[in-house]
Amino acid sequence: MNTFGAALKTMRAELGLSQLDLAGEIGTTQRHVSFLETGRSQPSVEFVGRLATGLELSLTQRAALFDAVSGRNPYRRADFDSDQVKAVLDMLELRALRHWPFPGYVMDHDWTILRANAPGWAMLEGFAASNNAPVSMYEVFLSEAFFSRVQNWEEVAMIFYFRMQAAAARSAPMAALFAKARAEGRFAGVAERLTGGAEVPPYIPAVLAGPEGVQLQMSSLVGQLASTHEAAIEGLEVELMIPVDETTEACLLAAYGR
């Protein structure tokens, strides 16, 4: 079985490169790339190193190429249930989320919540099922309960649309959820809004109906570990919710007791 050839072809397709383009990027010939993809030639570890350093590959793509050739793979591929990954999640929860006074989450590339602080779990009450099943933040944002509280959905729909589109390109479950949301009309009017000529502000906070008629205005910061060499945690995102005005800040601090 030509494992490396399949991995190389998949990677090339993900990057949108022809065989000739790929050859030019790493200093080889189109014929050599073709032979590698069809199994007529076998790659050297040095050649895989050139691919890994000469192209803008994700850690997951690099790991897949090294997995497909004999030799040591410098990129580990641990399971989310492994002790190593759990230790990373615990560190993010204890060193980042615990000190954030507003809702904060650690999520995988499907936006499944892996860790949250106390305000984060509290904010999800009424939006997510309480049956101990994994919670998808995308499913929360597309739920009827959340949708009914958003007072500027036409504006924030653009934000969710492009984030979901990117997630759907790399995940079959996310592609199915994105297709369902589009079929239900959640993103109706996004294209028209983009081309309608309206001025776009620097950022678009979500405006939610809060307690006692208070309007809550929130945005978020999204970050990733910069030093990871573990494919399983490359796609982890830390999302910290930010109140964008004093009224929202006061309301959130009062609600979560900080």
Results as ranks from 00 to 15, higher is better:
Ala7Phe: 00
Glu14Arg: 13
Asp21Gly: 02
Leu22Pro: 07
Gly24Met: 11
Glu25Tyr: 00
Thr28Asp: 13
Thr29Phe: 03
Arg40Trp: 04
Gln42Pro: 01
Ser44Asp: 10
Glu46Asp: 12
Val48Gly: 13
Val48Pro: 07
Leu51Gly: 08
Thr53Pro: 00
Glu56Asp: 15
Arg62Ile: 01
Ala68Cys: 14
Val69Thr: 14
Ala78Ile: 01
Asp79Lys: 11
Asp81Gln: 11
Asp83Thr: 06
Val88Asp: 11
Leu89Gln: 12
Leu92Val: 00
Glu93Trp: 02
Arg98Ser: 06
Trp100Leu: 08
Trp100Asp: 08
Pro101Thr: 04
Phe102Trp: 06
Phe102Pro: 06
Gly104Asn: 01
Tyr105Val: 03
His109Gly: 00
His109Trp: 02
Trp111Met: 14
Leu114Ala: 09
Ala116Asp: 09
Trp121Phe: 03
Met123Trp: 08
Phe127Leu: 09
Ala133Gly: 11
Pro134Leu: 05
Pro134Gln: 11
Ser136Trp: 07
Glu139Lys: 09
Glu139Trp: 03
Val140Lys: 00
Arg149Ala: 05
Gln151Tyr: 04
Val156Thr: 08
Ala157Lys: 10
Phe162Val: 13
Met164Gly: 11
Ala168Trp: 08
Ala169Phe: 07
Met174Asp: 13
Ala176Glu: 15
Ala181Asp: 06
Glu184Leu: 03
Thr195His: 10
Val200Met: 07
Val200Tyr: 00
Ile204Thr: 13
Val207Ala: 07
Leu208Pro: 03
Leu208Ser: 03
Val214Met: 11
Gln215Glu: 11
Gln217Met: 15
Val222Thr: 14
Gln224Ile: 04
Ser227Val: 13
Thr228Tyr: 09
His229Met: 11
Glu230Trp: 02
Ile233Asn: 03
Gly235Glu: 05
Val238Thr: 12
Val238Cys: 10
Glu239His: 03
Leu240Val: 00
Glu246Met: 04
Glu249Leu: 04
Cys251Phe: 03
Ala255Tyr: 01
